[in-house]
Design a protein around this nucleic acid. Structure first.
Lengths: 276, 276
DNA sequence: GTTCCGCATGAATCGATAG
DNA sequence: ACTATCGATTCATGCGGAA
């Protein structure tokens, strides 16, 4: 049976074998990036990453409903002066596995990590790859529409203050000129670029993604009561958001430490909610 | 000899064979997208795109200086409900050709209008792939610095103890050691995400990119007097920008129609400049 | 209640040095 | 030669406490 609203300690590749097929509506996850968390996840070498990931992807494909979606948040690192190609190879390999590579969303990290190097700038974006089992999948675009009344505010907020000061002419002319087109319309659809800051508040995990990231995809690809799975749960962000949005959640985490953090966070939130 | 400051009518794969090797400082171009300009470029089918592009890339590699850079502005189309993989395959194939895939910049198209498709949102970004011949290449980062955010003014007023000697975190970042470098600083280095509006003015070419795009890369990778090549010139944006910035330009365009537009634009600008 | 302001921190990368 | 470790470099945000 499907372990609804549970957080499970274990290797997702193994744990998922006990799940029935075609039972999950959305998989949204941020797997360990190659070689970057040596001390926590064992550090998969970039050259071995595809081979490590593929068996897991096969299980994801099995448990995902035909109408479901798989969102993979990932970014290749720089190795020996180049961007490594394991993410590109992973996409190609997953297509051979039967996945459809439907779309690539860009997460623009407004507060990216600082640094300076002679040959590259700071990395301010990550990929959110959308995979599907079939061309027809559930998508609730209206759930993530931006209200027109707030459109101006949100748009400018998304650009952030610094972006505005850096390119005032473009923002003002482009924005002011077009605003008349939107009068009378209620809501606008977003684009495939997400502007979110990483949350710097320590949640006991070195690589939490911001709540808004899973939130956006959960709203977009599921309805209330649907099942959301995060096979690399980390400190539990996806599960917390899914529950808050009235979705069923399943989280799998391999390290005892983060499993504990995730369980405690869920309990803490539970308590807070019962107090209200 | 290298045809400095010229626009040439012809197929770049052929035309470039007459150029000496190691003679160009920067190649920046936006090639015909697969299947999207059928009537102008003959419409390369997505499945044939890599095989069509590779011979051209080989010539680019030959004429590029060892210290030079190749910027390729490209985005895969959605074909049959999926993102096509020809761009991923092209990157892998070019690496086999000897190119280094140094970086992937994201061009975020700020003023893109919300559209409506049943299963995807409006595409608001394109790839700008950076390729190099060797790990050491010319990069003039100071030429593209941007104003610092407003936070800096208040932030640097009084530094906390942790700013001066911050404990190394889990990720072992030695942040905050030479905070004195910051005081009085007005500008910051940009990131690998470019926020540029698409230009609305259609200059008789179906895929013009905005002036700001080649401008940014020309400033970043060349100095005055350097040679900038656009092998798919289109209506001439790259050549115009290069000349304006005091770089030598070479443009190659295969279609008579766009070649004419490019030549006329250059002449028109020449006239305007002589009037000032 | 709002607004302001201080401040810790984050999926980094390169080059030199040591083993 | 080849790998492992270490030091140096650098922004911008959301949070929480205070006004």
């Amino acid at each position: 049976m499907l372990p609804i609203n549970q957080i499970i300690l274990g290797d997702c590749g193994e744990v998922l074998k006990g799940f029935p097929e075609n039972s999950v509506d959305l998989i949204v996850t941020s797997p360990p990036y190659a070689d970057s968390r040596k001390n926590t996840y064992g550090g998969i070498h970039p050259d071995d990453y595809v081979q490590w990931f593929l068996p897991n992807a096969a299980e994801f494909q099995r448990v995902l409903k035909p109408s479901g979606t798989f969102i993979l948040n990932i970014k290749e690192k720089a190795v020996d002066g180049e961007r490594h190609t394991y993410v590109l190879e992973l996409i190609l390999a997953m297509r051979k596995q039967g996945w459809l590579w439907t779309e690539e969303f860009i997460w623009h990290k407004k507060n990216c990590y600082p640094g300076k190097w002679p040959n590259r700038f700071r990395d301010a974006w990550e990929r959110c790859l959308q995979f599907n089992k079939q061309r027809q999948f559930n998508m609730y675009q209206e759930a993530v529409m931006v209200p027109m009344g707030d459109w101006a505010k949100t748009r400018l907020k998304n650009l952030s203050e610094t972006d505005k000061t850096r390119d005032p002419s473009k923002v003002e002319s482009g924005f002011g000129k077009n605003i008349s087109n939107w009068v009378g319309r209620e809501q606008a659809y977003p684009t495939n670029v997400l502007h979110l800051a990483t949350e710097t508040a320590n949640r006991g995990h070195s690589a939490t993604f911001p709540y808004a990231l899973p939130e956006w995809f959960i709203k977009l690809f599921t309805q209330e009561g649907d099942v959301v799975l995060d096979p690399f749960l980390g400190s539990g962000t996806t599960a917390q958001v899914a529950r808050k949005l009235g979705r069923k959640y399943i989280g799998v985490e391999i390290t005892e430490q983060y499993y504990q953090v995730a369980v405690e966070e869920m309990a803490r939130e539970n308590e807070q909610m019962s107090l209200l």
